[in-house]
C-alpha cells in the first residue's frame, strides 16, 4: 500500500501532468499571480483586486452571476438542440418527447427556462447597481452603453426562445410582439406615414421579422436561428468588449472624489 504523498508524487511527476500544468503551485506571491495570468479562464481577472471587489456588499456579484447564467443557458441550450427540429411539424412533439422520452429531459428544459428568467432578473439588478454606484461615470461611459445593448440582447434572446416550443403561449406572445413591428412609423404597414413608402403587409418590418405575413414555419426557423446562433454570437462579442473594458477602465469602480 502506498501513502498519499507517494501517490500524488506519481500522479504529478510525469510528462503528461507537467505538460498540462507546467509547474507546481506553492503559496507564494509569484505563484498566486501565476495562477491567475497563467490560466486562460482566470486571466479575465487582474492579479490583485480591491477589497470591494471581493465583498458582496458593493457589486452584489450581479454582473458575474449574469455571465454565469449565460453559460448555463449556452450549455443547456446546446444539449436541447440535440433533441429539437425547428419545423412546425416536429417542434411541439420534440418538446413533448423531452417530457416523456428523453432522460432528464424535463430538468434540462426547466433549467433552460428558469435560467432564462433568472438571467433577465439579475441583468436588470446589475444595471441598477451600476447606476446606484455611479459607475457609468468617467471613464466608464462607453462600457455602460455596451451594457445597455447587452441588456436589450438578453431580452431579445429570451423573446426569440419563446416561440421555439411552438405552443399557444409562444405563438401568441410572438404574434403580439411582432405586431408592434407592423406599427413602426414609415416601415410598418400599420404605422404612420407608411403609405408614402408604399409599405404593405408583404414588405414591411414585420414581414422581415417573420419571413411571412403570419407567424408560421419561416418565423419559427428565423427565431430559432436568431436564438441559437445570431444573437448569442453578437452577445458573446459584446461580452468580450464589456469585460475587456472593465479591466481597461480600471477594474471595479472605486470612489473618485
Amino acid at each position: 500500500m502506498k501513502s498519499l504523498p507517494e501517490i500524488t508524487d506519481k500522479v504529478k511527476k510525469n510528462l503528461i501532468w507537467k505538460s498540462i500544468f507546467r509547474r507546481d503551485y506553492r503559496n507564494t506571491v509569484r505563484d498566486r499571480a501565476q495562477a491567475v495570468f497563467g490560466n486562460v479562464f482566470l486571466h479575465l481577472h487582474p492579479v490583485q483586486v480591491r477589497e470591494s471587489a471581493v465583498k458582496l456588499r458593493f457589486t452584489w456579484g450581479m454582473g458575474g452571476i449574469t455571465f454565469f447564467a449565460f453559460i448555463i443557458l449556452v450549455i443547456t441550450g446546446v444539449v436541447l438542440m440535440f433533441y429539437y427540429h425547428p419545423s412546425i411539424e416536429q417542434a411541439y412533439t420534440d418538446i413533448k418527447d423531452l417530457e416523456y422520452q428523453v432522460p432528464y429531459g424535463v430538468i434540462l428544459r426547466n433549467l433552460h427556462r428558469w435560467g432564462a428568467h433568472f438571467m433577465v432578473i439579475v441583468v436588470m439588478i446589475h444595471m441598477f447597481r451600476v447606476f446606484m454606484t455611479g459607475s457609468y461615470k468617467a471613464p466608464r461611459q462607453f462600457n455602460w452603453g455596451v451594457g445597455v445593448i447587452l441588456l436589450v440582447l438578453t431580452f431579445l434572446l429570451s423573446f426569440t426562445g419563446y416561440l421555439t416550443p411552438w405552443d399557444q403561449l409562444g405563438f401568441w406572445a410572438i404574434t403580439v410582439g411582432t405586431n408592434m413591428g407592423a406599427a413602426t412609423p414609415f416601415l410598418g404597414y400599420q404605422g404612420p406615414f407608411s403609405e408614402f413608402l408604399h409599405i404593405t403587409p408583404f414588405n414591411d418590418v414585420r414581414f422581415a421579422l417573420l419571413g411571412g405575413a403570419l407567424v408560421g414555419g419561416n418565423a419559427l426557423l428565423r427565431s430559432y436561428i436568431w436564438h441559437c446562433v445570431a444573437i448569442p454570437l453578437v452577445a458573446t462579442i459584446l461580452m468580450m468588449v464589456h469585460f475587456w473594458r472593465v479591466r481597461k477602465d480600471g477594474g471595479i469602480s472605486k470612489p473618485q472624489k
Binding site: V36, L42, E51, P255
Partner: peptide, 16 residues
Amino acid sequence: VDGENDKFVDTFKPLV
C-alpha cells in the same frame, strides 16, 4: 466613504 481606503488583495484565492 465605504471602499475609499480599500487595500488590494490577491485574486487567487479570495476572489476566485
